[in-house]
Structures are given as structure tokens and as C-alpha cells.
């Protein structure tokens, strides 16, 4: 296989591309209106990634009751707005978090809950947990402390709502604009065979957030995977090994 360069097939038309015309003033007004509405109805993905999940039932249920301001849990990533990373992330969980994050529809917001997502927290010298969440997926806000109180969780939700309303919760755009950097960090941890089923670059083109950092040397590796997967996979293709590590 070494003498032939991999052929990247033409990407099929995944979704409708947005004209430059459409991104005019009217569009921006509509966006602001949509943000205003969106901030009042947020669904949090029900994924207990760490111990912080223990403070979510009190936050959501009758005592602190986040539903009164419009925050409610949602079971599927495709219908959720907020990915709440509740505490430390082991490397194994981080893979699932990235898969969940990429399945969520934009605009999407990530909140880091607890000190562990900021700088490793209590597990700063643990070989198993990820130290910085924002290296792997862009985050809109963090809550410090271990364990943060439900009031702190409420506060970060309210802050996020304000940010969304003001059109400033734009971390999800950073994932498209600098996809190569995020992918590089992910590959440094999971190995070069790491790839997800979501075509992030096509999504970036769809939303119109293709920047200088969207493509780079790491996405080239990704393209090679795609080319191999569509053709007959050669013997030394590492896909099988990646699957072995993912599944027990």
C-alpha cells in the first residue's frame, strides 16, 4: 500500500450549505432572537461522567428545582443542549464524552463541574484521569470546588443562560474553527487510529465555521482512515486494534 497515496473520495452532499447572502443582517437579527428563546429552554444530557452526578438529583428535583428556570434532563445526546461534565474524566470516559459531544446538535454548550475538569483537582497525579477538559472539547464554563453545591450548579446554569442570551456562549464554534488542535490532543491520548463517526469538517462547512485551524496535519490522518475504510482495508490497518481496546 505504500506506493499509492490514499484516494480521498468526494464527500457526498451531507447537508445544505449556507449562502453568504443568508448571513446578512436579517439572519443576525434572527440569530439573536433565537438565542433569546434558546436560553429559556435548555436540556442537559443525562450522563453521569463522574461523582458530581450525585448533586444533580437535588438540583433538578423539588428542593432546588432547576426546571422552574427551564433546565431539564434529557436522555439522548441528539436532543440535548448542555453536556455537563460532572467531575473527573477517565480516559475511557473521555472517548464516550467526545462521541456524545459530536452527536449533539449545534449550538451546544459544555460545562465543567468541579475542580477535576479544570486542572485534575484531587486526582492531579492519577494516571487514569484527564487533567484539562478544555483541551479535548471546548467548554463554556466551569464550577470550582469539590463537590460544588447545588446552588453553584444553579449559578453556572444561570450564567450560561445569560451568556447564551447575549450571544456569547460560542465555545462550540471553536470546535469547528480549531478542530485540528482538538483532534490532535485527542489523538495524543488515544493514538492515531482515533476517529469518530461524525464528520466534523462537513458540519463546520455546513455552519460556515471553517477556519485556518479546521484542517491540519491531524485531520489528514483522519482522511486517510476514511479512504481506507471505504476501500479494502489492508492487513496492517490498525482499525481492529482500536476496536479491541474500546470493547472489553
Amino acid at each position: 500500500m505504500s506506493d499509492t497515496t490514499p484516494v480521498i473520495p468526494d464527500q457526498p452532499e451531507v447537508c445544505r450549505t449556507v449562502d453568504a447572502e443568508e448571513r446578512g443582517v436579517w439572519r443576525r437579527v434572527m440569530d439573536r432572537f433565537a438565542d433569546h428563546c434558546r436560553a429559556r429552554s435548555l436540556f442537559v444530557l443525562h450522563y453521569c461522567t463522574g461523582c458530581g452526578a450525585i448533586e444533580l438529583p437535588p438540583t433538578i428535583t423539588s428542593r432546588f428545582d432547576m426546571e422552574r428556570v427551564g433546565v431539564s434532563p434529557m436522555v439522548t445526546p441528539r436532543q440535548a443542549d448542555i453536556l455537563l461534565i460532572t467531575g473527573y474524566l477517565s480516559v475511557k470516559t473521555l472517548k464516550r464524552v467526545i462521541l456524545s459531544y459530536e452527536q449533539m446538535q449545534s449550538p451546544k454548550y459544555v460545562l465543567g463541574f468541579g475542580s477535576c475538569t479544570i486542572n485534575g483537582g484531587m486526582y492531579w497525579n492519577s494516571y487514569a484521569t484527564v487533567k484539562r477538559l478544555d483541551q479535548y472539547i471546548p467548554a463554556d464554563g466551569f464550577i470550582a470546588g469539590c463537590m460544588p453545591r447545588p446552588e453553584a450548579v444553579q449559578q453556572v446554569f444561570l450564567d450560561l443562560m445569560k451568556k447564551i442570551d447575549a450571544g456569547q456562549a460560542n465555545a462550540w464554534q471553536d470546535y469547528y474553527l480549531n478542530y485540528d488542535r482538538y483532534l490532535g490532543n485527542q489523538m495524543a491520548l488515544f493514538g492515531e487510529e482515533w476517529h469518530t463517526p461524525v464528520d466534523v469538517i462537513a458540519e463546520a462547512e455546513h455552519y460556515g465555521y471553517v477556519g485556518d485551524g479546521t484542517r491540519g496535519r491531524f485531520t489528514e490522518i483522519l482522511d486517510r482512515h476514511a479512504a481506507y475504510a471505504l476501500r479494502d482495508a489492508p492487513e496492517d490497518y490498525p482499525e481492529r486494534g482500536a476496536n479491541e481496546r474500546l470493547l472489553p
Binding site: 492531579w124 497525579n125 492519577s126 494516571y127 491520548l189 472489553p248
Partner: peptide, 22 residues
């Protein structure tokens, strides 16, 4: 299952050195 290094509980495995490297 996501681990490729040596068995981590061995005393010869330095967790802080691994963290600083990774």
C-alpha cells in the same frame, strides 16, 4: 481497556512521571 502501559500498580510505574509526560 484504554491502557497500553505497564501494569499501573507496580511500584516501578511512576504515576506522576506518566502524568507529566501525557
Amino acid at each position: 481497556t484504554s491502557w497500553n502501559g505497564p501494569p499501573p500498580m507496580l511500584k516501578s510505574f511512576d504515576t506522576l512521571a506518566y502524568v507529566e509526560e501525557t
